[in-house]
Design a binder for these strands. Structure first.
Lengths: 167, 167
DNA sequence: CTAAACTTTCAATAATTATTGAAAATAAAA
DNA sequence: TTTTATTTTCAATAATTATTGAAAGTTTAG
């Protein structure tokens, strides 16, 4: 396989995988493209490589910037905008974790806490509250792990978890 | 809020949240319903509570069984099938983690390894391989953490991570 | 200022994914 | 065995989500 094919295969595979994690296919592909590109790309470049419309590129690039994993980059002598992806994978991982935590884990905790408020002491209500409480407990633990992960530096995490994992 | 309303609110909220994690809304709702139910439910019960068709119930219940988080339960004197959800939330969390790891994390590692195989030593190819290698490294670490989590018992995980998290 | 280059928006449309419901298959009862 | 209850399948359809493309908006150059 030649390099360009490998890159394309990577981009397309990434797109399909994204779906199972609730991520838009095109967004994953745009990110993958920027990640393996050695130079900043313009909207045109992305349109052409992925064969998608200008509007689609714009929306997905904005979303990626919003996630903090893609940045605008100025190219001298060029008027239009260029984009690059964070190449530090550890940083990328932390950023994605941080955003998903904020957008998707924390709201779950909020909902669970709200539901706990019910005033009813029947046997059945207590059972329901127990389920909610257990869900909160596990979710909180996960949330704390993610917090620590975000703050950790790569070396710390790898070595720490190696210890734990080898236990 | 009265108990039944709280349960329904929980079921519907869970359904919406599921979408951002790539889980079918109805599947999440069926699971939530079984989780907060104090007794085994039949296909009819689920159809009625969630207002969905028989075929839909059947497909989603099968999927949940396939994920290992719902079981059939025999009710004496009844001919039809009844279903219950694993009530142990820690067990539930481990089961989901295990399945997602198997279905979605491991295939990623496979793809990354395959792509590494490219025979090209140009500057650009080396950069590409570095990205792939970094992705593999982070994914492997995550995979190992998940492995250990699956094998851990609740107490071990909570206490261990509390230590780490408080660090 | 005006024109050109470029970006953003969003209603219309396409593509994907989920759901229905009735027929076929299966299993239990008579 | 035949009948009846129950589950499964799957083509048709509905609902959701993603994409297009052209018009409106914005920015920079002249």
């Amino acid at each position: 396989m030649v390099l360009e094919d490998a890159k394309l295969k990577y981009i397309h595979t990434w797109g399909s995988l994204a779906t199972s994690w609730g991520v838009n296919k095109t967004m994953a592909q745009v990110h993958a493209l920027l990640l393996v590109s050695t130079k900043p790309l313009s909207a045109e470049d992305i349109m052409e490589t992925l064969q998608i419309s200008r509007g689609n590129v714009n929306m997905n690039v904005r979303a990626l910037i919003d996630w903090g994993i893609v940045q605008k980059e100025l190219v001298i002598g060029e008027r239009k905008e260029f984009f690059v992806a964070t190449k530090d994978i550890w940083e990328l991982f932390k950023q994605i974790t941080k955003e998903r935590k904020r957008r998707e884990v924390e709201p779950v905790l909020k909902v669970l806490a709200d539901l706990q408020e019910i005033e009813d002491d029947s046997e059945e209500a207590l059972e329901f509250k127990k389920v909610l409480n257990d869900l909160s407990k596990v979710t909180t633990t996960v949330n704390n792990i993610l917090d620590k992960t975000i703050k950790a530096d790569e070396h710390w995490l790898l070595s720490n978890f190696t210890k734990i994992v080898k236990k």
